[in-house]
Amino acid sequence: MADVLKMFEKHKNAVYRLALSYTRSVSDAEDICQSAFMKLLEHSEIPDEKAKNWLLKVTVNLCKDFHKSFWNKNREELSEEIPFEIPEQGEAFFAMMSLDKKERAVVYLFYYEGYKTEEIAKILGISQTAVTTRLSRARKNIKTRLEAKK
């Protein structure tokens, strides 16, 4: 039990951010975050050093399931926004959030979490080529969107 709480304190924001990058909804991301840690509770055999990757993989699966529902497919553009004090941060964030959800997760894991493309492929359950393709496409799209803002 203590380990799951420890893992929660350690990885809650990583899990939450990944869920947010998929759902673009604060409250849905919170729910998915909780579900992910509830699953960890059932899998006490997961060693601490593997917990983060395991949690992120579970989060991705929960997010995929979440996106299957009609409701979520049709409301993605209407989610809550997050206020930023520094405009440039907000621009970068929202440019990323305006990407396709598959690209968002890759960008988050690569740039912020610092995972290698091979590790991202394992977490997302896709090929390494697909990761690099999505990254490349995402970079191009973010650049285009940020330049259009100027």
Binding site: Y16, E30, Q34, I86, E88, Q89, A92, F93
Partner: peptide
């Protein structure tokens, strides 16, 4: 840099955190 700093600001709320704990 902006992107990473933006993400740093995104944290699970205390309310949600307490609920999950």
């Amino acid at each position: 840099e902006n992107f990473n700093n933006a993400w740093k600001k995104i944290e699970l709320s205390e309310t949600a955190s307490e609920r999950i704990k």
